[in-house]
Design a protein around this nucleic acid. Structure first.
Lengths: 266, 266
DNA sequence: CTTTGTGAAGAATTTCACAGCA
DNA sequence: TGCTGTGAAATTCTTCACAAAG
């Protein structure tokens, strides 16, 4: 952070909002399915339903790409598939390396979705010498020592990290040092990278925790009052929070109004 | 989301914004690491750096939970770990089923991050009878027929779907029918669920496509980019494929900008 | 008619910047 | 003094609602 002065907008996206970019693959998938069924055109309403968004959002998203629809008719499926593919950069080949061939790395290597859209697994890399040469998903695992030459020879710019958390930053640094500028990180750790390198994170545990949050809420709602305070033994002050007072039962959480003094355990 | 209909604001969150909820696990992880190193307190600046966000955002996030810090000092690590855990519902046990024990499902089953935070894998389920009984990650794979009793007997409310896309909706329906109300979906398909059921999606291919978009931009913007356009010529055929149809071809497709891609053969 | 494309309103999120407390 | 907590401003994202096009 602290880009110091001018505060780079971060989203230098040439006009296309990040939120829209994140949905384009969704549209593309829905369109591909339609294409395979030889459906010639779709309305924004139909396509939105297939992609799980609402139609206004979809139309707005497409409006950033250009005017690719026909009023009164809808969108030409094939044409839109092409346009979105091009916008996403999928009309070219993207060699990818996967580093860390454990359970997850192997699963990723076997994942068909990789190859299906312009992504080609250029190599599987692991630090364990015992793994070297072993075939996984039809490719021989290469040793980390070869990382540089693999990246160079294949023109790899996207790397997937599926190592244990402890090794991730080191692997990341090496990838970046040798020219990789986009990283998909499966290790449960925050990677720091120089400016200009993109990192996306996929974190299992985080997703589950978010679900747990909502699940907990549901459980508390349906029954009576949330039994939140039950185990909050650490703070005696909290117990004093009168459920009455405040109009509207809010389960004891004090809310954004900062008048409750900080309570710290001894 | 999906479900289309009812305009529920989706963010039913009792005051705490969805964006904040999504970051709490991140903070929790950073705090846990500090806790293991016996660090007693952290400032918002330090913690923010460890979590990969900026400090103002972190403080704002925490302000939704309450006033848990001490001005001039920072946050008590242990106390904050407890508060966030409680907020996320991690102080209780969440039995989880994983459906679809292929490469990915097996990798998930072996993933340590599951058990580490209140999540317990109650069962691994697969539709293939040949899998039944086979041990994966120390658990015997159970057949889909047992799904209902497994969910009931274990009080499972969270399900993980790691089946092929084609089976995902069906599996989802069965999970929901038997009481699961939160789903983590790894299958590349949009699930439709009744109101009240949360779905989160993890999609490999989508993440890569988003990276490709940014990667493409980098390459196009800086003329002095990595030489990965070597094989770009391959797209020529694709361009020709665009359906001539396009209703009378208005000539000037209005693209959002001087969108003159490098590789757009005439 | 039907359906797109889009200004404008509205909501959510992020960032700023500083009052106020330890 | 140092750092939190938070109104307010800025930014981003979503939704509305309707003119225009086919």
């Amino acid at each position: 952070m602290a880009t110091g002065r001018t505060h780079r907008p971060a989203t230098r996206s040439r006009g296309i909002p990040e939120a829209t970019v994140a949905r384009l693959p969704l549209y593309l998938r829905a369109l591909t399915a339609l294409s395979e069924r030889s459906v010639p055109t779709v309305s924004s309403e139909e396509l939105a339903a297939a992609a799980g968004v609402n139609s206004a959002k979809l139309r707005k998203d497409f409006s950033y790409l250009g005017s690719y629809g026909t009023r009164g008719v809808g969108y030409d499926v094939e044409y839109l598939v092409y346009q979105i593919s091009r916008e996403l950069g999928l009309t070219q080949d993207w060699p990818v390396v996967i580093v860390g061939i454990g359970n997850l790395g192997a699963a990723l290597a076997n994942y068909g979705g990789f190859a299906s859209r312009g992504f080609r697994v250029a190599a599987l890399i692991d630090a364990d010498p015992a793994m070297a040469g072993k075939p996984v998903a039809g490719l021989p695992v290469r040793h980390t020592d070869e990382l540089e030459s693999i990246i160079r020879d294949n023109g790899v710019s996207i790397g997937v990290i599926a190592t244990p958390a402890g090794a991730a930053q080191q692997v990341c640094d090496r990838l970046v040092a040798h020219g990789v500028t986009s990283i998909l990180n499966f290790a449960p750790t925050v990677l720091s990278v120089p400016e200009g390198v993109d990192v996306r994170k996929v974190d299992l545990s985080i997703e589950l925790q978010i679900l747990a949050f909502h699940e907990q809420r549901k459980a508390g709602e349906e029954s009576a009052a949330p039994a939140d305070l039950a185990a909050a033994g650490a703070t005696a002050a909290d117990a004093a929070a009168s459920p009455a007072a405040r109009a509207g039962a809010d389960g004891g959480r004090k809310g954004p109004d900062g008048d409750v003094p900080a309570v710290m355990p001894a």
